[in-house]
Design a protein around this nucleic acid. Structure first.
Length: 291
DNA sequence: CACTTGACCTGTCCGC
DNA sequence: TGCGGACAGGTCAAGT
């Protein structure tokens, strides 16, 4: 589900609400969603305080005052929703949200704070997870050790993007963009959107792309991710921000979920097909495979 | 090794 | 209305 802009939006929201809150309890009904034991919870979570909340790729990191952290991967359908008390959901337009009162049947983990506010981890498909780690060990876990650079980092320049892509010169560009070890944070929506903007067919082999094309793709990835953050991310089905509200990027999307609609640049009908198991959207006129 | 497919889950939608 | 199948924003593991 959530890609970089959605996760970034959630992290910004959590930073508004959670800093300085003290944990009263953590409960889970599914060991896959939260594998740590009650002993760990008692020892490392109860009475600790939220120090900071950050993001790396699509992973959320909640740092606690006792040198432990909660790391959270939302995968396809995960949500992290803050409620300051049970009645707070009464406000807000129904169209702004996809959830009613919490917890509900998709709730996998509940973090209660001493001021009676709650953080709910909802996850329909149970792919996502929350886990507790010593803060200092985070960079050492496999996922983070292998994770590629942040596309919006000011130190990440197009030449680095170019050299990282070249490590996969024989494979198609789309699965390379989705490979988190090459570049962090891009998922199916923003891969399709950036390839459309760059007029590149997603099945084009990396070694068929010119330096100019790759530089252009690098620029477009950064433009699209930044723009989506401004719009609060994309709500396709399940995504909600920390306040339980939708993002509006898809109203501005050019190809994702736009099949059978005209291309905004040339009017050709947008086509959807399956590529390496992922739904893929292109303008068939402008995005051609270079042989 | 590098690429590709299936598995992990639940829910919804679409066609018959 | 019921039922089967396809599909869904992500990653792994296991094939080839």
């Amino acid at each position: 589900m959530p890609e970089l802009p959605e996760v970034e939006t959630i992290v910004r929201g959590l930073n508004k609400f959670l800093l300085g809150k003290k944990i009263l309890s953590v409960d889970s009904n599914n060991p896959k969603s939260f594998p740590n034991s009650q002993t760990d919870v008692d020892k490392f979570l109860i009475d600790s305080t939220i120090l900071s909340i950050t993001r790396r790729g699509k992973v959320i990191i909640i740092n606690l005052t006792n040198s432990y952290s909660l790391i959270i991967h939302l995968k396809m359908t995960g949500q992290l929703i803050y409620r300051d008390n049970e009645s707070s959901f009464a406000g807000g337009h129904p169209n702004d949200s996809l959830v009613g009162s919490l917890p509900d049947k998709s709730t996998r983990v509940v973090v209660k704070f001493t001021d009676s506010s709650n953080l709910f981890f909802n996850d329909q498909r149970k792919f996502g997870w929350v886990r507790l780690l010593p803060t200092i060990e985070i960079p050492n876990i496999d996922f983070f050790k292998k994770l590629g650079p942040e596309p919006l980092d000011t130190n990440f320049n197009w030449l680095e993007f170019y050299s990282r892509l070249k490590k996969r010169s024989k494979s198609s560009i789309k699965p390379v963009l989705l490979d988190q070890t090459i570049i962090a944070g891009i998922g199916n929506i923003y891969a399709d959107e950036s390839l459309w903007m760059s007029k590149i067919h997603p099945a084009t082999k990396v070694d068929k792309l010119s330096k100019t094309k790759i530089r252009n793709l690098y620029n477009n990835i950064r433009i699209i991710l930044s723009f989506s953050i401004e719009k609060g991310g994309s709500t396709d089905r399940n995504y909600l921000n920390a306040e339980g509200k939708k993002g509006s990027y898809l109203e501005f999307a050019n190809v994702f979920r736009k099949e059978n609609q005209p291309c905004s640049r040339c009017g050709t009908t947008i086509v959807k097909f399956k590529l390496y198991g992922r739904g893929t959207h292109i303008c068939p006129k402008e995005q051609r495979i270079i042989k």
